[in-house]
Design a protein around this nucleic acid. Structure first.
Length: 474
RNA sequence: GGCGGCAUAGCCAAGUGGUAAGGCAACGGUUUGCAAAACCGUCAUCCCCAGUUCGAGUCUGGGUGCCGCCUCCA
């Protein structure tokens, strides 16, 4: 299994640190607001990594945090006249609603910053003891960047270049402009916790170090998040972690490309984001998942309605192929022994393509390539169904359906199994369809067409077929 | 200015030095009372220049054009 690591800027063979499990930490949301689709790129990436690792037999300890105290949450609470806790809790619930809808596997742990203050304080204390951090007179504690000689190795910067952009905010008492806050002294009316340096709250970066090390150990396998977190967040996280432990922090840094829209990065500050709860009104979780997986996670993808419509059309092709196979299966009966030449060809091709599907995921979780293989199976299956519509090759059809199930479920589609071929048609609609069929038999096209309109008005579509008709959901 | 990324058909997009996956659209066909849907088929030599190599979309150097990070951001 080959995995690209942002730190070394190369891919290499993945071997877990521990024989019995893989440790994976994903930077979660700062819960100042509801989740948008951009947030779900790293979460979905982690979901795929998780599923693939489990498919390979690994146990994954999957940690995804919530940053539930920071300037923006405090500000939001102030505007709304509520508490930061209430803002955070509300948005955490929104996250879980969207995550469930999207069929994301639940993480092993969802640590919150506010519930890990002792661990955070202990880690800061360790840094102070080692001389990597210092308390300023105002009660802030800063990381002394120049004591960590490897600073900049993740984002590819050197401290001297950074100097030009670095600045000291009003009220900060840093020794060096590059230093960053580990602990922020309490301000009136803000959430605060006691510490050896006085009351205050954690800085942004330190929580991820404290919490990841708590649940995964001082060195762990994979750390994920958006590319935009590389600097300063992950650079700082790495620095303070390795400064504290003198051990390598993360073995594989997995950064996803950002989602764009209208040619611009989708972001909170630009206000051009699409909320998950809104998108889920218009598109199915499957369609959204398909859209996100049809681009490699490290590339930047462009979100637009047109892209989503394409995803819908493409995914529909897969659903249709499955439905056709299911129909073929029903007509094939129980004669599983008979296998035609076309059937055995299909079976061989499907087996081969499924192997190529796994190979694609084996190579840096290439879901886009993997989906390409699914479509190749679709085409071969369709050809087969076209060529042999009579009841034959039940065993082959079963095998291909099983193959679709394995591939699609590994990508997180159809958690409850493949969709049943035929929808439950309401008696009323069924009666209309029957009447229409009678009208057609009587060559009364006008009546047939108006009945079709009535059925359509009830949300169903009739397809005429050589052997009759089929009613399906619009 | 510093650091990094990207450039593949009308659009999206994969590509691990060995002769360009897949999807959408379009077009042709099958099917149909008409239609829709569906299915099948057709559809590129990879931004430019030079180099390395038996062989380059893939590697190297030089251009050009986009984009990101350097401030909160998934």
């Amino acid at each position: 299994m080959r995995v690209y690591d942002s730190l070394t800027r190369a891919e290499r063979e993945f071997e877990p640190l521990h024989a019995d499990h893989v440790g994976m930490y994903v930077c979660g949301m700062t819960v100042q607001d509801k989740p948008h689709i951009g947030h779900f790129v790293p979460f979905l990436t982690a979901d795929i990594v998780r599923r693939y690792l489990e498919h390979k037999g690994y146990r994954v300890v999957h940690v995804q945090n919530f940053t539930d105290v920071d300037d923006k949450i405090i500000e939001r609470a102030r505007q709304e006249g509520t508490t930061p806790e209430a803002v955070a809790e509300r948005n955490i619930q929104k996250y879980f609603e969207a995550a469930r809808a999207m069929n994301l596997l639940p993480a092993t742990h969802y640590p919150k910053a506010t519930e890990h203050i002792p661990e955070i304080v202990a880690l800061i204390d360790r840094l102070v003891e080692r001389g990597h951090a210092y308390a300023a007179p105002n009660g802030d504690v800063y990381f002394r960047v120049r004591t960590f000689s490897a600073y900049g190795k993740l984002s590819g910067r050197n401290v001297d270049d950074l100097m030009s952009g670095a600045r000291i905010e009003v009220g900060e008492e840093k020794e060096d402009p590059l230093d960053f806050a580990l602990w922020k002294a309490a301000k009136p009316g803000e959430p605060q916790w006691p510490s050896p340096w006085g009351p205050g709250r954690p800085g942004w970066h330190i929580e991820c170090s404290a919490m990841s090390m708590k649940y995964l150990g001082e060195t762990f396998d994979m750390h994920g998040g958006g590319r935009d977190l590389i600097f300063p967040h992950h650079e700082n996280e790495l620095a303070q972690s390795e400064a504290a432990t003198a051990k390598p922090f993360v073995r594989f840094w997995i950064h996803n490309g950002l989602l764009y829209t209208g040619g611009e990065k989708m972001s909170k500050s630009l206000g051009n984001f699409f909320l998950m709860e809104d998108l889920l009104q218009h598109y199915s979780a499957e369609e959204l998942r398909f859209f996100l997986l049809s681009t490699h996670f490290r590339s930047q993808a462009e979100y637009s309605d047109a892209r989503l419509e394409e995803a819908r059309a493409a995914f529909q092709r897969i659903r249709e192929a499955i439905a056709r196979l299911q129909e073929a299966r029903r007509s094939a009966g129980e004669n599983t022994a008979l296998v035609s030449e076309a059937g055995s060809d299909l079976r061989d091709t499907a087996t081969q393509l499924q192997q190529e599907f796994f190979d694609a995921l084996e190579h840096d979780f290439n879901t886009a390539a993997a989906l390409g293989k699914v479509f190749e199976v679709v085409r071969h299956a369709n050809r087969f169904v076209d060529a042999a519509p009579s009841g034959r090759d039940a065993a082959v059809v079963d095998a291909v359906l099983e193959s679709f199930t394995e591939m699609l479920q590994l990508l997180g589609f159809f958690p409850d199994g493949l969709p049943a071929g035929a929808d439950e048609v309401p008696a009323e609609v069924d009666a209309l369809a029957r009447k229409r069929q009678e009208a057609r038999a009587a060559r009364d096209w006008e009546a047939a067409d108006s009945l079709r309109q009535e059925i359509l008005a009830r949300g169903w579509v009739v397809d005429d077929r050589p052997d009759g008709y089929r009613v399906k959901r619009k």
